[in-house]
């Protein structure tokens, strides 16, 4: 069994006095793709936010590359190779496309290289380089958000519901990009409501229901439990 690059052990977290994650255990193996499925409100996004340092951890531990990183600030985690593409549109709407890409250079890439990589992967962004990100279409905004992952080549990429509010065709092409990033050796954890979009590219999968992981295994094993676990995808 390959070693884990990101390990979440006994994660508990919540909002105020309401706990929404109850002892979640998940581990992401180096160079693999893990898909976490679950219906709306299962706690998937909170889990990713906890892992990325955006949401306080109640109890449990987070290990990145074997190092305890619980309660690290999000920027420190980012500098140590963790990259979260957040739910919704992970772009700065009032900055131009180029300025958005410039923001990805905090981790040591030059501005020119960043643009070269991003425009090569997503030529559409090149056409819109001086446009405000807020005026891009939903799909283009997700491309811009993903471009960051392409540019910084993190150890671990966390992707939160790329499909949100987008046409299925667009979703497929965005996940093609994620697949390409994974093929480059980046370990990826994707969270999705729509199983169909991600099961094909995952090495392993898990199902979350009401803040707990109820099934884990290969995509084929997990797929069997899908309909009983929730009526999505």
């Amino acid at each position: 069994m390959a070693e884990a690059v990101l390990e979440l052990k006994g994660i508990r977290a919540g909002y105020g006095s309401v706990e929404v994650l109850h002892e979640v255990d998940l581990s992401l193996r180096r160079g693999s793709v893990l898909a976490v499925l679950g219906s709306n409100g299962a706690g998937k996004s909170t889990l990713l936010r906890v892992a990325a340092g955006l949401h306080p951890l109640g109890s449990g531990s987070v290990l990145l590359d074997g190092r305890r990183v619980a309660n690290w600030s999000p920027d420190r985690l980012a500098r140590h190779g963790l990259c979260l593409i957040p739910e919704g549109r992970g772009v700065f709407p009032r900055l131009t496309v180029r300025e958005n890409l410039w923001m990805s250079t905090h981790l040591g890439v030059t501005r020119a290289t960043a643009e070269e990589i991003a425009f090569a992967r997503f030529p559409r962004l090149g056409e819109r380089r001086d446009q405000m990100a807020g005026t891009l279409s939903g799909g283009e905004q997700q491309m811009l958000a993903l471009a960051r992952a392409v540019i910084v080549r993190p150890k671990v990429l966390l992707v939160d519901e790329l499909s949100m509010g987008l046409a299925p065709q667009l979703v497929d092409s965005l996940y093609d990009s994620v697949r390409a990033i994974a093929a480059d050796g980046v370990s990826v954890l994707v969270v999705e409501q729509f199983a169909r979009a991600v099961l094909g590219m995952a090495d392993r999968a898990a199902i979350m229901v009401s803040g707990r992981v109820v099934h884990q295994g290969t995509p084929a094993e997990v797929e069997e439990h899908l309909s009983s676990a929730y009526l999505g995808g």
């Binding site: 990325a52 999000p74 920027d75 980012a78 957040p86 992970g90 709407p93 300025e99 905090h106 960051r148």
Partner: peptide
């Protein structure tokens, strides 16, 4: 300027 748009996204980019 980015901080006003989305503070946590700035942190996710590795800036402080």
């Amino acid at each position: 300027r980015a901080v006003v748009d989305d503070r946590s996204l700035v942190a996710l980019n590795g800036a402080r």
